[in-house]
Amino acid sequence: MITPLAEEKRETLRSFLIDQLGRGNLDLPLLPVVANRVLLLSNDPDADASKLSALIQQDQALAGQILRIANSPAYSTRTPIVSLQQAVTWLGLTMLAGLAFSVSVQNGIFHTTGYEKEVRNLWRHALATGLFGKEIARRIRHNVENAFLCGLLHTIGKPAILHLLSQSPHQSAEPFSWTTVESLFEEFHVIAGSKLAAVWQLPDPVQETIRYYQDDQYHQGLSPTKGAMITCLAHHLASVMLGDSTHDEHTLLTLPIVQDLNFYPEDMAALLELRESVRASVECFLP
């Protein structure tokens, strides 16, 4: 519930965001060098484990996290993972590239003081969406790698808004209430994400997904990889799994996206059965 005072604050912040997002020279953060190169490498047909591990080595924090994830129970092998190249080989190039990108971005430009827990939850949701997206794509025989990246980055606009708010002249010692921030996300995260994706030159299907992943928008997606449709359902599944959805397993079945993807109740049941493995992956990447 937003109090009248908070409403007044929200309106001030809203005006600030409208002004910022309406500017041609929007002050959006630059993509960290490592994240940018990781993303480029993931789309490079010549990419291999040694190139990616060499790149990750340039960021010590990132390298440490990758090794931790590779050795976590959900991914661990019989033998411990001791090198980055071994970790890259074990986790997979696409998965690792996406995660390296996410971790790099999370630890860098989107590290917003006062909202650490909330930002972590945003990334958990994004990662769960990417992982569910992979499974949906597998079922409908669409591109799996693309679905992961689309899911991982579909709400990149939310941390972008936090970044903008951190530049706001209306900041006080107290962080803005999360309810206020969420209501601003609701209104602005798609436009902020779209602008950021364009500035960062993210792949076209990812840009399209950021624009159109929502229930009333996915019909506008034209990409043959169906990133917007896949991410729309993956987003709902992730929300149900993480307990931040108004839907439950039964009401999920009534969503138009479920009908449009032609998923029968048994198909949805099969997807929901994957919750534990998705949860385990999310936990080991973002505990």
Binding site: N43, R138, R141, N143, V144, E145, N146, T225
Partner: peptide, 18 residues
């Protein structure tokens, strides 16, 4: 897995030529 090892349905989901 329809990602690296494909069948004749998922082969058409490739985005780039391998």
């Amino acid at each position: 897995d329809h990602e690296h090892i494909l069948d004749s349905d998922s082969i058409l989901s490739l985005v780039y030529l391998p």
